[in-house]
Simulated assay, not measured.
Amino acid sequence: MSNDTPDSLIPYDEIVQEALRAVVGRVLREVVSNGSELPGAHHFYITFKTGAAGVSIPKNLRERFPDEMTIVLQNKFWDLIVDEDGFSVGLSFNQVPAKLEIPFSAITAFVDPAVDFGLQFQAASGDTGPPEHDDAQNDAPGAGPERGPTPDVTAPDDGSNVVTVDFGRKK
Rank of each mutant, 00 (worst) to 15 (best):
M1A: 14
D4P: 00
T5C: 04
T5K: 10
S8D: 12
S8K: 05
Y12K: 10
Y12F: 15
I15K: 13
V16E: 05
E18W: 12
A22T: 11
A22D: 10
V24R: 03
G25I: 04
G25V: 02
G25H: 05
R26Q: 12
R26A: 12
L28S: 00
R29I: 05
V32Y: 09
S36H: 03
S36N: 11
E37M: 08
E37K: 15
G40A: 12
A41W: 04
A41T: 04
H43C: 12
H43M: 12
H43Q: 09
F44G: 00
Y45H: 15
Y45G: 06
T47H: 01
F48H: 05
A53Q: 11
S56V: 15
P58M: 00
P58Y: 10
K59A: 09
L61G: 03
R62K: 15
E63A: 04
R64W: 08
P66D: 09
P66Y: 10
P66F: 03
D67E: 15
E68W: 12
M69P: 03
V72T: 13
V72I: 06
N75Y: 05
K76Q: 07
F77W: 01
D79H: 12
I81H: 09
D83Q: 09
F87M: 07
G90N: 02
G90V: 00
G90Y: 03
P97C: 00
K99H: 04
L100E: 04
F104G: 02
A106V: 01
T108F: 02
D112R: 04
D112V: 10
D116E: 11
F117S: 07
G118W: 01
F121Q: 03
F121W: 06
Q122N: 14
A123C: 07
P130H: 11
P131C: 07
H133P: 00
D134P: 00
D134R: 11
D135F: 14
Q137R: 12
Q137D: 10
N138S: 12
P141C: 12
P141D: 05
T150M: 14
P151R: 08
D152C: 05
V153W: 01
A155E: 15
P156C: 03
D157K: 13
S160P: 13
V165P: 12
D166A: 13
F167V: 10
R169W: 07
R169V: 15
K170E: 08
K170Y: 08
